[in-house]
Amino acid sequence: MKDATKERVEKETADWQYMAELPNELHGFKLERLMEIDGDVYELFRYSSAEKHRSATAYFHEETKEYKLRVKIGLVEFCKMEYITGSFDTFELLLKTQLEGMLESLSRFDEADIGSILRSKKIMEWEYGRRLPVSLEGFQLFIAPAEPVEITNGSYIIIDYTDFAQETSFNIYYNMFRDEYFGEARIHNIPDVNYVFDSKELDELEKKLQEHLVPRLREIRQRAQQVK
Rank of each mutant, 00 (worst) to 15 (best):
K228V: 07
E7G: 00
D89K: 06
Q140P: 04
A14H: 09
L44T: 14
E92K: 04
D163T: 00
K122W: 15
E127A: 03
R223V: 02
R131N: 12
D203V: 15
G39Y: 08
N153T: 10
G74F: 03
V214Q: 10
P191R: 04
E12V: 13
P148E: 11
K200W: 15
G154T: 04
K65R: 12
K200E: 15
E150N: 00
T168A: 10
G101S: 15
E104L: 01
H61M: 00
R216P: 09
L93C: 07
R216H: 10
R223S: 06
S49L: 05
E204G: 12
E32Y: 04
Y18W: 00
A58C: 08
I187F: 01
V9G: 04
D203G: 06
S199Q: 14
E77A: 08
F177C: 01
R8M: 10
Q17V: 11
F29Q: 07
R33F: 09
K6S: 04
L26M: 09
L34R: 09
L141N: 06
Y18L: 02
H27E: 14
G154W: 04
R131Y: 01
E12M: 08
S116V: 09
I123D: 00
R130F: 08
N175V: 08
T97N: 05
R178W: 15
Y47R: 02
W126Y: 13
R108H: 09
N175G: 08
K11A: 15
M1G: 11
E51S: 04
F182A: 05
G86A: 07
E201Q: 02
L141V: 12
K80Q: 11
K65E: 15
G154Q: 05
Y128F: 03
Q166K: 13
D203L: 01
I157S: 04
Y173W: 09
M124T: 14
V71P: 03
F88Y: 10
H212A: 10
F164K: 14
F142A: 07
E25F: 10
L213G: 06
F164S: 15
H61W: 12
